[in-house]
């Protein structure tokens, strides 16, 4: 499990977990779950397109994730947010289906893209993954205050002169970058689970935003580490464990919170 060829898996899994945990906290705070679900699917289409033209999948992942994010950002200014997201989602997925039908990709490759592959990041890709991860976290840190402010009280934020559009787009770009890095490891369909489960659980358990981010990152790390280990030991797709652990953490947090409430009020 800790042999040399697994080193990449542990390193990339750790980077991805920290990134998804941090970004996911804001996804949950802003109620942007649908976008966080749609962008990985766009990234999947990008990877399929990259295979078609024969370039690095990471390029396809990043460019299509960004394209999806901007598509959602631009359309949602004209119409309801969820409708804009749904339309962007199906458009990207349909494009991905078209790419798949005209290119010859082995089914295991497709399955790996959809459901995750612990060896999905090769050692040559480790450097770009690390750099993009650091960039995402830096952007997140730069926008931390306005992000929290516009998420919690959009009217007040506007009154204080925060440009909501800039914050919105910057946030979607960060989601896109984090997504592009996460998809090769946990898969296009499960990236979303990693971004929702741990932060949703952390948010229930912790009241202060800073602590909640930390809790989210912590739970996300546990999720990914346990999933890599279990996936390796049982030879089952990592995505299953990520999805299951996310739900378990959330339900556990709900139960814990209910116990706290039923304690005599002070």
């Amino acid at each position: 499990m800790f042999s040399s060829f697994m080193t990449n898996a542990w390193i990339s899994g750790t980077i991805v977990a920290m990134l998804a945990g941090a970004v996911g906290f804001f996804v949950v705070l802003r109620g942007a779950s649908f976008a966080a679900h749609a962008i990985p699917n766009g990234a999947f289409a990008g990877a399929a397109g990259a295979y078609l033209v024969g370039i690095s999948p990471l390029v396809g992942l990043v460019s299509f994730a960004l394209l999806s994010a901007l598509g959602i950002g631009v359309t949602s200014r004209r119409t309801r947010n969820d409708v804009a997201t749904a339309l962007s989602l199906v458009a990207m997925l349909a494009l991905g289906a078209a790419f798949l039908s005209v290119s010859l990709i082995y089914e295991p490759t497709i399955n790996a893209l959809l459901f995750g592959e612990i060896l999905g990041v090769s050692s040559s890709q480790l450097a770009p993954v690390l750099i993009l991860g650091v960039v995402s976290v830096a952007v997140l840190g730069w926008f931390y205050r306005p992000l929290v402010f516009t998420s919690v009280a959009p009217e007040l934020a506007r009154a204080r002169g925060v440009n909501a559009t800039v914050v919105d787009v910057a946030f979607l770009v960060v989601v896109a970058l984090a997504t592009a890095l996460t998809v090769p490891v946990v898969g296009a369909l499960l990236t979303f689970s990693l971004m929702i489960g741990p932060p949703a659980a952390a948010r229930i358990l912790v009241a202060r935003p800073g602590w909640a981010v930390a809790g989210s990152v912590g739970l996300s790390l546990v999720t990914v580490w346990v999933s890599i280990g279990a996936s390796y030991a049982l030879n089952l797709p990592i995505g299953f464990f990520v999805g299951a652990l996310g739900a378990v953490f959330y339900l556990g947090a709900r139960v814990a919170a209910r116990r706290r409430v039923t304690r005599p009020a002070t």
């Binding site: 979303f192 689970s193 929702i196 797709p237 299953f240 999805g243 996310g246 739900a247 959330y250």
Partner: peptide, 13 residues
């Protein structure tokens, strides 16, 4: 999101 995430895990399996 939580239901969807869990279902995706099951689908993968």
């Amino acid at each position: 999101g939580v239901v969807l995430g869990a279902a995706m895990g099951l689908a993968a399996l």
